[in-house]
Measured scan of single mutants.
Amino acid sequence: MALNTPQITPTKKITVRAIGEELPRGDYQRCPQCDMLFSLPEINSHQSAYCPRCQAKIRDGRDWSLTRLAAMAFTMLLLMPFAWGEPLLHIWLLGIRIDANVMQGIWQMTKQGDAITGSMVFFCVIGAPLILVTSIAYLWFGNRLGMNLRPVLLMLERLKEWVMLDIYLVGIGVASIKVQDYAHIQAGVGLFSFVALVILTTVTLSHLNVEELWERFYPQRPATRRDEKLRVCLGCHFTGYPDQRGRCPRCHIPLRLRRRHSLQKCWAALLASIVLLLPANLLPISIIYLNGGRQEDTILSGIMSLASSNIAVAGIVFIASILVPFTKVIVMFTLLLSIHFKCQQGLRTRILLLRMVTWIGRWSMLDLFVISLTMSLINRDQILAFTMGPAAFYFGAAVILTILAVEWLDSRLLWDAHESGNARFDD
């Protein structure tokens, strides 16, 4: 018995066209964080690309023209004298008006014999932002004059995390709450300039795509075929072959399989920071003279006294001054041990922890910024005066060393310790 099946006739004509040209192939790229070699397709503007294995951002879609970056830099340069030299806060102490600005706080630190601690604050609040705007201006002028731009481009990517104007702005709020127990506070004209400078700096850093600047100024022929001998440069993120001198053909720094002496430098910085954190938390970090009496505060006791007036601000200072430094030390110690013992479990967790400490590390400088600003506000000789204690130097040095330890660690070593050939990683 035959089955009668109805015929289905399409209502619209289906047209099949042959592909007349070869589909576009992607360029081969190595991930600078996990060293995976993959094919990167062509990316349009405002599109980002991520590593298929570790999800690290390979290409950032946010990109401004150099002219727009230069305009932002010149605007920031105009704001800087007002943000640093004009009063941020006014207080009335014992019937006398006192003005506080950024430069005055750094000068008070240096004047009291601790120039190293003052230079830490100076670099993060004044030096690094000033280098940022002058570097962008150098790129703008240098591109037109045919100057060598490689050193500036190499420095810009590392400079971003040292620009800490946003953290200093939080420190202004913390210092205001600490001082309000002794005097009446009012915002100064410099505060508005400083807030504007923070906003412009944040926007500029978020749109400063150094890798795209490398592509514009020093374009290189990408690798179009897969080759395990391809290496990625950690300076400019170019994937290719080393030249005859073993250097990256684009930025001219040595092109090595792994960062040289990464573990040794990381261990040295980490152990030194552990040693410095002990006096930083045991010795007094601030000293207040009130009517001839002397009151010393460690980091913890200062947080407890701050909690009596504002528990939320005390929580912020606790996280930045105690929780973050010790968390960074514990995480980095764990990561280094996992590399030495070739741990194969929990790779995803370790990668996330490394990215976390990379982002939060700079916030530990908050305590030094609060001390710097408070020193310029309260300084009335023996009637009422505020000065920093010996722990300030140890704390600042420990924070900087932990930042350097994270920067010096080559994250690809975590993958080397893991089993080879993993296309995915999980716990």
Score class of each variant (00 low, 15 high):
424 R>E: 15
188 G>T: 11
343 C>E: 09
216 R>D: 07
122 F>R: 03
140 W>E: 03
281 N>E: 09
241 Y>L: 10
182 Y>N: 08
191 L>Y: 03
184 H>Q: 12
154 L>M: 04
336 L>D: 03
208 L>M: 14
112 Q>N: 15
337 L>F: 14
255 L>S: 08
390 P>H: 08
220 Q>F: 05
346 G>N: 14
33 Q>C: 12
143 N>E: 15
309 S>F: 05
98 I>P: 02
181 D>N: 02
350 R>G: 12
212 E>L: 15
376 S>N: 01
252 H>E: 02
80 M>I: 07
218 Y>L: 06
320 A>C: 10
65 S>Q: 07
181 D>R: 00
326 F>Y: 03
417 A>K: 08
190 G>V: 04
298 T>K: 09
179 V>Y: 02
290 L>P: 01
27 D>Q: 13
74 F>D: 03
353 L>H: 13
370 V>A: 04
193 S>E: 02
213 L>C: 11
390 P>L: 07
249 P>W: 06
368 L>N: 10
189 V>I: 14
12 K>R: 11
119 S>M: 01
231 R>N: 06
387 T>L: 09
419 E>P: 07
348 R>T: 10
331 V>M: 15
288 I>D: 00
121 V>I: 09
63 D>G: 15
53 R>K: 13
292 G>A: 05
424 R>C: 08
385 A>C: 10
58 I>G: 03
404 L>E: 11
237 H>A: 07
324 V>L: 15
136 I>V: 09
162 W>R: 02
43 I>K: 14
247 R>W: 13
419 E>T: 11
288 I>Y: 01
343 C>R: 14
144 R>Y: 13
186 Q>S: 15
11 T>F: 11
146 G>P: 05
72 M>H: 02
247 R>A: 07
386 F>A: 02
269 A>E: 02
100 A>I: 05
52 P>N: 08
125 V>N: 01
38 F>W: 09
318 F>R: 00
149 L>P: 08
424 R>D: 15
415 W>I: 07
64 W>C: 14
185 I>C: 05
171 G>A: 14
236 C>Y: 01
422 N>I: 13
166 D>V: 15
203 V>M: 06
169 L>W: 05
80 M>R: 01
152 V>D: 01
349 T>N: 11
219 P>R: 12
382 Q>M: 13
295 Q>H: 14
328 K>A: 00
225 R>M: 12
19 I>N: 11
271 L>I: 07
256 R>G: 05
74 F>A: 13
247 R>H: 05
328 K>G: 00
138 Y>T: 07
371 I>A: 01
249 P>L: 06
336 L>K: 05
413 L>T: 07
364 S>E: 00
57 K>A: 11
349 T>E: 09
225 R>T: 10
356 M>Q: 12
121 V>R: 00
226 R>M: 10
140 W>S: 04
306 L>A: 01
327 T>I: 08
204 T>V: 09
281 N>W: 04
160 K>W: 02
